[in-house]
């Protein structure tokens, strides 16, 4: 049907308009674009604006915690404002991946897709939002009782690390789906790289027990190796989604509702007469 659409115009805005109007995968592509954009915003918020990452020392004294919140208070609240606006768009990524899983050739593909979406959305809501709130509330009044500031400080990082189960499970579901998928929407080797991701999610769990060393929440193993693996995998994953979207069938015949519009009782006009398109067979 793309052959019948008008030719792609030149110019960024005109091209974008063309795609939104005629590309049967426009929603998928926009969801795809939201992934690099939203993840970059998240990275910027965590690493440069709020100074939440790389994580500060869990064994900070109360006085140092007060100093941390006093020093970065405004940036923390500003950064989380930016994050709270953009975070919901990560749900688009989850929706896109969950939907792609539903299109795979494996038993109960739809259920696997729903399961993926539920797990990932749960992780995003609890992991990112709870840590944003505790951190914002702590920095809102750095003159609070230092013990309470320390409580909020701990709650921030432990709720951040302690919700890994959602991501672990989401990743596990995706991995299984890729490896079991007979249509090979994603290459098998990518499925195997997903295993890195979910195994490293397992490995941060000691961070909720120990306060120093490589397994604490700012440690070499629990934070640095984990994060490097995650970011590397994330880059692969954006490219893999790109190819998967190209390979998958469009969500729906875009012109189905146009056909319905031709039926008596609706206010639509004939498609064939207005756009030169012939109605598609059902």
């Amino acid at each position: 049907m793309s052959a019948a659409a008008p030719p792609i115009p030149s110019g960024m805005v005109a091209k974008a308009r063309w795609h939104l109007r005629h590309n049967p995968k426009a929603d998928l592509w926009v969801a795809w674009w939201s992934i690099p954009i939203a993840y970059n915003i998240m990275g910027m918020v965590y690493f440069t604006i709020t100074h939440m990452m790389p994580p500060p020392d869990p064994s900070k004294s109360q006085a140092e915690v007060v100093e941390f919140f006093t020093r970065y208070g405004f940036e923390i609240r500003l950064g989380f404002g930016v994050m709270l606006v953009s975070l919901a768009f990560l749900v688009w990524a989850n929706g896109l991946i969950g939907w792609l899983i539903m299109k795979m050739d494996l038993p109960h593909a739809k259920a696997w897709g729903y399961a993926y979406m539920l797990a990932m959305c749960g992780g995003g809501f609890t992991g990112a939002y709870m840590s944003a709130f505790t951190m914002s509330v702590a920095s809102l009044r750095p003159d609070r009782d230092p013990a309470m500031l320390q409580l909020l400080y701990d709650a921030t990082y432990i709720s951040f690390d302690g919700t890994m189960g959602f991501f672990l499970f989401g990743s596990l579901i995706w991995t299984y789906a890729i490896l079991a998928d007979k249509s090979r929407l994603f290459p098998k080797w990518f499925g195997y790289t997903c295993i890195w991701n979910f195994t490293t999610e397992f490995l941060v769990s000691p961070a909720v027990i120990v306060q120093t060393g490589p397994f604490s929440w700012n440690g070499t193993i629990a934070f640095w190796i984990d994060t490097i693996v995650y970011i590397g995998w994330q880059v692969i994953y954006v490219f893999m989604l790109y190819y998967a979207i190209k390979r998958v069938d469009p969500p729906k015949d875009r012109f189905r509702s146009m056909r319905l519009a031709n039926l008596p009782g609706s206010r639509g006009t004939s498609v064939a007469s207005t756009s030169g398109l012939s109605p598609q067979p059902a």
């Binding site: 793309s2 792609i8 960024m12 805005v13 091209k15 974008a16 063309w18 795609h19 939104l20 590309n23 049967p24 995968k25 426009a26 592509w29 926009v30 674009w33 090979r184 290459p187 190819y243 190209k246 390979r247």
Partner: peptide
Amino acid sequence: MASTNADSSLDLTPAEIDKAQRH
């Protein structure tokens, strides 16, 4: 938004599918 995909066609050509499958 979707404009950067503009020059690529909407669907894979048979050659591209072959390549992906060989991979």
